[in-house]
Amino acid sequence: GRCLIASTLASASPEDQKKMLGEWLFPLIQALQPTLASKITGMLLEMDNSELLLLLESPESLCYKVDEAVAVLEACQA
């Protein structure tokens, strides 16, 4: 639940907070974009932790952000 996630994050260092958020987000992103999941997770981890928590709670928001990230990646690789 949200309280467990928030309290776990609050007790961690900034580096560990990002790592934990990545560990939680990665499998969700991998389900949407199996081949780009590592890069997309890395991109999204540059966002504020509070925004990342919202993405964890909202599959629709996460799906939208993943689509955005894919578009940026493709633009960079073009």
Partner: peptide, 22 residues
């Protein structure tokens, strides 16, 4: 430019080093 190594890739179980690049 310096965007060749961007974005930093996240791999489960590996310490996250993305903050070093900001």
């Amino acid at each position: 430019g310096s965007s060749i190594n961007w974005p930093p890739e996240f791999h489960p179980g590996v310490p996250w080093k993305g903050l070093q690049n900001i």
